Amino acid sequence: MDSILGGYNMNTYALITGASKGIGRALALQLAKKGYPVLLVARSKDELQALATEIITTYQVQARWLAIDLSDTQAPEQVLKWCTDNSYQVSVLVNNAGYGLWGSFEKVDIDGQLNMITLNINALVKLTHRFIPLLKQQSQAYILNVGSTAAYQAVPTLAVYSATKAFVLSFTRALRYELRDSVISVSCLSPGPTDTGFAHRAGLDAMADLAAKFNMQPEEVAIIGLKGMFRKKAEIVPGFLNKISVIGARHLPKALIEKIGGDLYKSK
């Protein structure tokens, strides 16, 4: 499961979950570009190995990977054991792994929805809890939880997904306050539509053309996200239109926001 690549011995690593594609991949590349050796965690062995090779070749930093399904309840402990057994000192934890499912709640497979909750919430919480003691060993450390603009309102037909991201945002802000006097800075990155394949996995293929008009690129989201993280911002919303949507969700009547969302993401 593990591949040790590269020849540089730097002091601390950045660990990124969901690193094989999309925003997670872009975050890993940007962190490597900044000189961080990276720990890449996701399900796909082939994609992780290819990314590790690309990082080593392009940025001349260590890149090590662990292929594991974080929706497995024991996975966070296995990730921690992988780090402690190999003496990987972690100063950046990026909780990016997650996915969405679209459709009427009563019609979408319940096992898929529960698995989504396990990955989007349980794995993130458990990994964070397990890694805080390691992060506190550093002179400065960061946690970046990847949420979504869906965190700021209820979204009909993305009901469970938006609820998981609302949890991520609320959890991040509370944890940030609890750790305010520690060496750990906690931030939440909430992207809007991004060209990651999210819509396809969620079952939103019918909206692909519409989404493409508003999509940001993963690299742009990653650059903005890391800039905000290193500046110790609490909430990072990349993109002007996404910022406007968040402001609207905070100030417009909830019923209106839910109707807009319901009309936009019509149920199957």
Rank of each mutant, 00 (worst) to 15 (best):
T57L: 09
T84L: 08
V38P: 06
Q60W: 08
L39T: 08
S87G: 05
V38L: 11
L80P: 09
S91M: 09
Q89S: 12
V38K: 07
W82K: 00
T53R: 05
T84E: 07
C83H: 00
P76V: 04
L70V: 06
A63H: 02
A42I: 08
L51T: 05
Y88T: 02
V61I: 03
Q78T: 14
E77R: 12
L40Q: 05
K45F: 07
L80M: 11
T73N: 15
S44T: 13
L66Y: 04
Q62M: 14
L66D: 01
V94S: 04
Q60Y: 07
Q62G: 11
V79I: 10
R43Q: 14
Q89H: 11
V90I: 07
Q62K: 15
A67H: 06
V61F: 00
V79Q: 06
V41M: 07
T53A: 09
N86I: 01
I55P: 03
A52L: 04
L93N: 01
V41R: 01
I68K: 10
Q60H: 15
V94P: 11
V90Q: 02
R43W: 06
T58D: 09
V41W: 02
W82G: 05
C83M: 05
Y59G: 01
T57M: 13
V41H: 04
T57H: 15
V94Q: 08
I55Q: 00
L51N: 06
T58I: 08
D72E: 15
L48N: 00
P76I: 01
D46H: 12
A50K: 14
A50C: 06
L93Y: 02
E77Q: 13
L51Y: 08
E54H: 11
Q89P: 00
D69G: 15
T84H: 05
Q62A: 13
V79Y: 02
D69C: 12
L93H: 01
Y59V: 00
D69R: 12
I56Y: 04
T53V: 14
R43P: 10
A67F: 00
T84Y: 03
L80H: 12
C83E: 02
K81A: 15
S87Y: 13
I56W: 03
Q74T: 10
A50I: 07
A75G: 09
A67D: 14
T58A: 12
V79C: 02
A42D: 11
R43H: 08
L80K: 13
L51C: 09
N86Q: 07
V38M: 10
C83V: 07
W82Y: 13
L70E: 05
L80C: 11
V79E: 01
L80T: 06
Q78W: 14
N86C: 06
K81C: 12
A42P: 03
S87A: 13
L51V: 09
E47P: 10
A50Y: 04
